[in-house]
């Protein structure tokens, strides 16, 4: 409630979008129609709205995977369209978790999680230590050497969370992270996500259809037809 009445001062927001527009096929498919959004560091924010309203598109823009047609996306005070080193940004500032875990099925849980750390040039030893902590926190310590194929849906999603947090990002972008899980597992994974991000001071922006889960977040943003129509 308070957020809506006292918008975060610009300098404090970790993610800020200003009048962001995005369309596909040369404007034929208008997806985002002027998104203004500010998110405070450490907050867990849920992004709700009907299918096709542009949630994933917005997450991709915030994660620097794509650029808006118009408007600016600013992360930690830096305009992403002016950012030179997007690889560094993806490695150190952003973690992604997707609906379909997007893990490499024939690698083990450990190998999947080491990928971002090794890509970022961290030593194997440091990476393994970090993974050790995350595995304990997610209850996956016995699954490190299992191939993804042999893990359950919930375990896969927990692996994806570990992987996203490997390089200690300041922002975690989750696109329907519990979308493919049953209700019970989904609740457990969500709690883990929320707990971990809170615990480590990570800002969470999560697209979800599950209003029950969204209610538990610090903020809930409703999108409709590429606009923000309601906030809580």
């Amino acid at each position: 409630m308070s957020d809506m009445h006292n918008p975060v001062p610009a300098s404090q927001a970790i993610i800020r979008t200003r009048d962001v527009w995005k369309s596909y096929d040369n404007g034929a498919i208008a997806v985002l129609n002027g998104i203004d959004l500010e998110i405070e560091p450490g907050h867990a924010v849920a992004l709700c709205g009907p299918s096709g309203c542009g949630k994933s598109t917005l997450l991709h823009l915030v994660g620097g995977l794509d650029l808006p047609d118009r408007g600016t996306v600013t992360v930690k005070g830096e305009d992403l369209s002016k950012k030179r080193d997007m690889v560094h940004f993806l490695r150190h500032e952003i973690g992604f978790v997707f609906q379909l875990h997007n893990l490499i099925a024939d690698l083990t849980m450990e190998e999947n999680c080491l990928l971002p750390a090794i890509a970022a040039g961290r030593s194997r030893k440091a990476a393994k230590e970090r993974l050790g902590q995350l595995a304990v926190q997610t209850g996956m310590q016995d699954r490190l050497h299992h191939r993804i194929q042999k893990l359950s849906g919930g375990e896969r999603q927990r692996t994806a969370i570990c992987r996203a947090l490997m390089n200690e990002p300041s922002i975690l972008l989750a696109d329907e992270p519990t979308g493919s899980l049953d209700e019970r597992t989904s609740g457990a994974v969500f709690e883990l996500l929320l707990g971990l991000t809170r615990n480590q001071g990570v800002t969470l922006l999560m697209a979800t259809h599950d209003r029950g889960l969204a209610q538990v977040c610090d903020r809930m943003i409703e999108m409709h037809d590429g606009r923000i129509c309601e906030e809580r």
Partner: peptide
């Protein structure tokens, strides 16, 4: 293609 996209999202550079 999808796997390569995953690598990119996880911080793999073009060169990698």
């Amino acid at each position: 293609i999808r796997e390569i996209a995953i690598l990119r999202v996880n911080g793999f550079s073009r060169l990698q």
